[in-house]
Each structure stands twice: as C-alpha cells, then as structure tokens.
Design a protein around this nucleic acid. Structure first.
Length: 406
RNA sequence: GGAGAGGUUCCCGAGUGGCCAAAGGGAGCAGACUGUAAAUCUGUUGGCGAAGCCUUCGGAGGUUCGAACCCUCCCCUCUCCA
C-alpha cells in the first residue's frame, strides 16, 4: 500500500480489529469523545416511492419560467439545455433531468471509508469517479484532505481533484460548472459516474442546480466589510431586514457570512436573495441520482478519525502545511483555514504545541462529521448503509441501475 | 505532627442565608444551511413533567421559617513549617 493511501480504506478491506501501526489513541488528547448512549445510526433502508431517487419527479417542469413568465436568465442561453444557472453558465448539451442516465452519489462522514469503496464501486461499474469534496479540489493539499493516493488514482480515473490552486476562488457554482460537463461526457459514453465526497452542498447543487443569483463581488464585499467595521453587524442585519425581509428573518443576526452574502446580492442586482431563491427552490433535477450515505456507529467514526489524524501527522501533514506557506499560500486563504490546515498553521506560528494542534484537529473533525450527518439526514433521498456492509450497498445500487435500464 | 487554602452540576470555575437546579467558559448533544460549506450560524445540557414536583453543591449531624452558603465532627486534595 502506498504511503499516501489513507486509513480510510484500511477498514474496508480488513477487519476493524487490524489497527494501523501507531494507531494508539494518545492519552493527551483532551475532550475525547464521550459517547453516553449507544448511537445507533438510522438505516432508513429503501426509500418509499415518492422519495426514491430514481422515481421520476413528475411535477417539476424541466426549466420553469419565473413568476414573470420569462425564462430565467441562464447567461442568455434561454434555458434550452438544462444547464446549471451559474456564473459562467456553461450551457450543457444534454437535458438529463429525468430521462438521462443516473449518477451514483456516495456520501458519508469523514473517515467512514468512502474513498476506498468508491474505487471498488467504480471498477465494478467500469466507470470513473468525480470528487465532491470541497477541499480536495485544491492542488498541493493532499495529506490533510485525505485525497485519494496514486494507487487509487491509477486504478480509477478521478475527476475534480487538483483543479485549482489554493489562492484561487472556488465555490459551489464553480464546482457545478466543472462537474456537470464531466458527468455529461461520461454519460455520453454510457458510463454512470460515481460522485464521492462529503460536501453536501456540492452534491445538492450537482443534482438540483444552484440559484442563479450573482457571484460574489469583491468591491461590494469590501464595502460591506468596511461598513461592518463602522456600524457593526447588527446594523447590516437591520438593513437586510428592511431590504429583504424574508432573508432578514431567516438569517440569524450573528451569521455574518450569510448576512453579508444576502446584502451583497441585493446591492449588486437590486434583487433580493430570497426572491431569487424562491424561484429556484432546488426544484429542477439536473441529474437523477442513486444516493448512498455510508455510516458507522458514532464510536466507530470517532475512533477512525482519531487514527486518521495520527496517520496524517505521521505522513507529514506538518511538512505539507509548511510547504504551502513557503509557496506563498498565506494562512488566511480559505483552504488554509480549513480543518487541519488551520490548526497546523497555528502550530507553525508557535501558537500551540503540536499535541495541542492534533487534539484540536481531532475535535473539529468529530464536529465536522456530526455536521455531515445532520446535513445528509435532512435529505430523505439518501439511503443510509452500514459502511461495512458493502454487499448490501452494491446490491442496492445494482438494483437501482437495473431498474433504470429496464 | 503544626499552620493555611480548598473540595460546586461531564470538566474548569463563580456563587458565601431566601431572587440557586446554581453565573461564565469548555466539552457533549441536537439543529440550520442555495456562490467561503472541512465554512458560517443557532439551540440545548440533573431527573420527570403543563404548572409543578423530585434529587444535587465531599460525608454525617446541627442552627434556622429557610443552607451550596453559618456551626460541629469526619474524609480527601494542595501549599508552607517541622
């Protein structure tokens, strides 16, 4: 096994009892998970017909006109193709919607074993993998993002990995712009793409499109930040409440990121974010998907996180972060503020010991895993499977795909 | 052996007679999420419940209408002196 291959995959092919070398849980780690009750993950099993990912969504028009009866603006492409309405508005040639080939979405909390299982699945389906992890799109960030290693990549072609530098802007819309054509191309050759990752929003956007609101505007953003410094966030929230009441009510006054975004949209376009979202509503289906969520018991996931972070350190995570900083990727860049990178950078600045950094990474990773479960729990189309039960998952996927062919 | 300080709800820590199931922080748990999403934010945290009731502030007694808070004894921890 290559060194860069992460523990994630170990659990899939070997009994959980087989611990990786050095997998001892360090006793220094504060806040070790206290699992009071036996969390038994929900396995909703097969979704009912209405919620079935493969059930055609009968009511949704492929490209609904907006309230004014005009086709919404897809960069002038007039909605002919079911193109994602994004900044660049790449018109996608096909109209997948409910008729085209499906995709397989493979999600799960960090460290359940998505990467390895995806490779297996992709080989069985003789297809390719599309990354749906918001951090693995960045170059030079390999160890800390648990990016698939050379071995995995040699077995199956991976897309959307290493597509931008850490100082380039990247967001859900850009993700859609890049991923949709890959899916279409794979569909063109009769393949069913396996989309793997833990970023719920990216998966949602990939299957349902994104609200055609404007992209972020640096000038307006700067102005807003300036006003925030002068008047405070509360004043900006008050303004939002006045200008876009639904958004103002929905967005908590402390949620700086969303308050700023909503105001940014309004100032840029004169249209409210809520209005735009109301028209969008994730109503269309861009790609039908078989949605699989891999789970393990809470204890299990936490233990795997523990081991995985230790393994990252052993593989040279600190060196990786130092290297990024040397390359000139500053500690305030978005990806450098992500899980792990942020804490290691703080350690390199001398703010914390390595032990402390590791401890924090583990804790933040546990929280992240929890948030992922919350996100995917909210989407009933995802069917939850015990990650160790590969056969059931494969059977289920085969069943769905067969149904589709028939 | 002597002197002093202290033992508070999962942890740290405030509280020094009623307004205390007990501030604040941490950790945990739950939730939200449409262009930063590995981000950002919210709620909650003794038990049972509708009010309300029950158990809790090292232990056992006591004072008081009433005690985490006052008194006595005991146990434990820390600091200093021998």
């Amino acid at each position: 096994m290559g060194q860069t291959i992460l523990l994630e995959q170990a659990g899939l092919c070997t009994p959980p009892a087989l611990q990786p070398p050095g997998g001892l849980v360090p006793s220094f780690c504060c806040g070790a998970p206290r699992t009071r009750r036996n969390h038994s993950p929900a396995f909703p099993g097969v979704a009912d017909d209405t919620a079935s990912p493969l059930a055609p969504s009968k009511t949704v028009p492929r490209c609904a006109p907006d309230s004014q009866g005009r086709a919404h603006s897809c960069g002038g492409s007039g909605c002919k193709p079911a193109a994602p309405c994004s900044s660049t508005a790449v018109p996608h040639p096909s109209v997948p919607g409910e008729a085209g080939l499906p995709i397989v979405l493979l999600a799960g909390p960090t460290g359940v074993g998505k990467t390895a299982f995806a490779v297996r699945l992709a080989r069985l389906l003789e297809t390719e993998i599309i990354n749906a992890d918001s951090m693995q799109v960045y170059r030079f960030m390999d160890i800390g993002t648990a990016k698939p290693g050379a071995e995995e990549r040699s077995l199956v072609l991976h897309h959307l990995l290493d597509v931008v530098n850490p100082d380039e802007p990247f967001d859900a819309a850009r993700y859609l712009d890049l991923a949709a054509p890959v899916i279409e191309s794979l569909h063109g050759s009769g393949k069913i793409p396996v989309v793997v990752g833990g970023t719920g929003l990216y998966m949602k956007v990939l299957t349902r499109g994104i609200c055609p609101a404007v992209p972020g505007d640096p000038a307006i953003r700067e102005q807003l930040l300036c006003e925030e410094r002068e008047k405070g966030l509360a004043a900006l929230h008050a303004e939002l409440l006045a200008v876009d009441p639904p958004s103002g009510q929905r967005i908590h006054p402390n949620d700086r990121q969303r308050v700023l975004r909503a105001l940014e949209v309004f100032r840029h376009t004169g249209e409210t974010l809520s209005g735009s979202q109301d028209r969008h509503r994730f109503a269309r289906t861009l790609f039908r998907a078989v949605k699989i969520f891999l789970v393990r018991s809470r204890e299990d996931v936490y233990q795997r996180i523990e081991r995985r972070v230790d393994a990252m350190i052993a593989q040279g995570f600190v060196k990786e972060v130092a290297g990024l900083l040397e390359m000139g990727y500053g500690p305030n860049l978005r990806p450098m503020l992500s899980l792990g990178y942020k804490q290691i950078a703080a350690h390199l600045r001398g703010e914390t010991s390595l032990d402390e950094a590791v401890c924090r990474i583990k804790r933040e990773t546990r929280r992240y895993a929890k948030r992922q479960m919350t996100w995917f729990r909210a989407d009933p189309e995802f069917q939850w499977f015990d990650a160790a039960d590969e056969e059931s998952i494969l059977a289920r996927i085969r069943e769905e795909l067969a149904k589709h062919k028939g």
